[in-house]
Design a protein around this nucleic acid. Structure first.
Ligand SMILES: [Mn+2]
Ligand SMILES: [Mn+2]
Ligand SMILES: [Zn+2]
Ligand SMILES: [Zn+2]
Lengths: 137, 137
DNA sequence: TTTCAAATGCAAACCATTTGCAAAAAAATC
DNA sequence: GATTTTTTTGCAAATGGTTTGCATTTGAAA
C-alpha cells in the first residue's frame, strides 16, 4: 500500500512552481483551495502567483492527477489527490475526515461506527458515460 | 409514495416570487441553477429579479427545503429538492439522471444495471456532526 | 384600514477565477 | 553550451456568478 509518488504529466515542463504545488497536494490531509496552497508556499518562501496555481490546478485536474470538489457553504473549489476525494465534513466545525474505503462498498451505519459522526446528510455525484453516449462511441 | 407538497417555511411571508420559485423547483427533474429558474419564470411571464431568486434559494437551503450542489466544470451552484440531490452525470453530454434510492444502500454494480451508465468515477460528501462537536452539544 | 416588518428590484459591490500580454524559464536544436 | 523555440509565469485587468445597500413595495398583524 505504498504511496506512489506523483510526477508531472508527460508533455508538460518541470518547473519549481509545478513541483511545489504537487508537493503541497501530496502532503495535504484533505482537499484544500487555491488560496491555501498559495499561503502554504508563501510560508515556505516559495515564489508563486495565484494565477499560476489556478492554471496548474486546471491542468492537473484535466490530466486526472487531481480531483476538484466543492463543499457546502463555501464558494471556493477545493483540490485533492484522488485518494482523498471522499470525505466526511462536520457541519459544526468544518472538520474533514477522509473516508479511506470507497463509500460505495459500505453503509451509513458503518461510517457512523468507524468515525463516530452523527450523520445528517450527504451528497453523491457519479460520473460516467450514459447509454446514448456509449453507443455514439 | 405521494409527493408531499412544498410550502413556505413558518415565519416567512407568502409572496408570488417565493411560490413561483418553489413551483419551478418542484417541477424540475434535476438540479438547476439560479439563471435557469429566472428564465423559466420569465417564460411564464412572472416578474422577478435574480437577486430575489438568490435570496430565496439561500433561505430555502438554510431551512433545509432545498439542497445546493456543484457539478464538475461548472462554476454555478445548482439547487434541487432533497429527493433529487443524488444523481448521475454523463461526462460527455451532461445528461443528469436522478438516483431514486439512497446510494448508500446500493452498490456501483446495481447503478450500472439500472441506468446503463459506464461509471468512470464519483464523489461523495457526507455531512454530520463529529464526535467532538457532539460532546460540546 | 393602519402599521410595520419583511421582501423585492435595481444597481453597485464583491471576490473567486480567468485571461491578455510581455518577460522569464525550460526543453529542443544546433 | 550557446541559440532557438515553446511553454510557463507574473502582473494587472477582466469576467461572471453571487451578494449587498437602499429605496420602494408588499404581506400580514393589529
Ligand atoms: Mn441518500
Ligand atoms: Mn465567480
Ligand atoms: Zn465538529
Ligand atoms: Zn451522455
Amino acid at each position: 500500500m505504498a504511496e506512489q509518488k506523483l510526477s508531472i504529466p508527460k508533455g508538460y515542463r518541470k518547473t519549481k512552481q509545478r513541483e511545489a504545488i504537487l508537493k503541497v497536494l501530496e502532503r495535504a490531509e484533505y482537499p484544500i483551495n487555491a488560496e491555501q496552497i498559495f499561503m502554504e508556499l508563501k510560508n515556505r518562501g516559495i515564489e508563486i502567483s495565484l494565477s499560476t496555481i489556478y492554471r496548474n490546478l486546471e491542468m492537473l485536474t484535466k490530466e486526472g492527477l487531481v480531483v476538484k470538489s466543492y463543499m457546502m457553504n463555501e464558494d471556493k473549489a477545493r483540490f485533492a489527490l484522488p485518494d482523498k476525494k471522499n470525505y466526511l465534513v462536520c457541519e459544526k466545525c468544518g472538520k474533514i475526515v477522509i473516508i479511506d474505503n470507497c463509500p460505495f462498498d459500505k453503509f451509513k451505519e458503518e461510517l457512523i461506527e468507524v468515525h463516530g459522526f452523527d450523520i445528517t446528510g450527504h451528497s453523491i455525484e457519479v460520473y460516467g458515460v450514459c447509454p446514448d453516449c456509449q453507443k455514439k462511441g
